[in-house]
């Protein structure tokens, strides 16, 4: 793995007293988890990568390309949020279609691409459903299908499965992991549960005290925490 899927070098951000600095390199095609107490800046890191926040210093690269000054829509990045991933008044097909063309003018090829994406996430034939006619898990599957048709090499998971039950959450993580293997995209997820990280993440970053306190292969990081704060966080 010679290309970095996501690289943050000297990225600074903050409001007033609260300041963070990120240095991180996630190998292309891997699945990375971000662990840390609430307020450690996990979601902020994703917001900076997605372009919803702009860093005060430093550079962000995706697949070797500098994206620091690009608008969110121009970045090769898709984010899955905890909620409001779908527009409530649009059908599954339209919601996915917006990922291809924001003015929703779709060719028949694009429509069959959408159907194929729905099939891949296990929602075959649900093109005409409105979000309220879908379960919580199914809504997030539609959002995953949209990230598939967008074909962006980096997928950010901002706790999209937090509201789902443990079994369903594991299913969703496995689904994302399988899609990652098929497409070769890089996935970065915010997580509260080390077990989730163990299940799917090749590598894990531990955020603490305004920066990334530790980063490495998930198993060794969690089995032998050499940073005291991480040991305390894990309760070992």
């Amino acid at each position: 793995m010679d290309v970095t899927g996501l690289e943050l070098s000297g990225v600074r951000f903050g409001y007033g007293d609260w300041q963070v600095t990120y240095d991180l390199a996630v190998p292309s095609g891997s699945f990375a988890a971000l662990l840390g107490a609430s307020g450690a800046g996990k979601s902020t890191l994703l917001s900076l990568v997605a372009g919803f926040e702009r860093p005060t210093a430093g550079a962000i690269g995706v697949q070797g390309k500098d994206v620091t000054n690009l608008a969110p829509a121009e970045r090769p990045v898709t984010t899955l949020f905890q909620e409001h991933n779908l527009f409530p008044h649009l059908t599954a097909l339209q919601n996915i279609g917006l990922g291809i063309d924001p003015s929703l003018r779709l060719t028949s090829t694009q429509k069959s691409d959408i159907s194929a994406a729905l099939e891949r996430v296990g929602l075959a034939g649900m093109e005409a459903r409105l979000p309220r006619e879908l379960s919580g898990g199914e809504r997030q599957r539609v959002a995953i299908a949209r990230s598939l048709v967008r074909q962006r090499p980096l997928l950010l998971l901002d706790e999209p499965f937090a509201a789902l039950g443990p079994a369903l959450r594991r299913d969703m993580l496995d689904l994302v992991n399988a899609l990652r293997r098929d497409t070769g995209m890089t996935v970065v997820m915010v997580s509260h549960d080390p077990a989730d990280a163990r299940r799917v993440a090749d590598c894990t970053a531990f955020l603490h005290d305004g920066g990334i306190a530790d980063f490495g292969p998930t198993a060794s990081l969690l089995d032998n925490p050499d940073v005291p704060a991480l040991a305390e966080y894990l309760g070992v």
């Binding site: 997605a50 372009g51 919803f52 608008a71 969110p72 829509a73 121009e74 990045v77 898709t78 984010t79 949020f81 909620e83 409001h84 991933n85 527009f87 917006l98 990922g99 924001p102």
Partner: peptide
């Protein structure tokens, strides 16, 4: 609810 999604989709 939707500003971020709009920004990321370029809507």
């Amino acid at each position: 609810h939707h500003d971020r999604l709009c920004a990321s989709l370029g809507l």
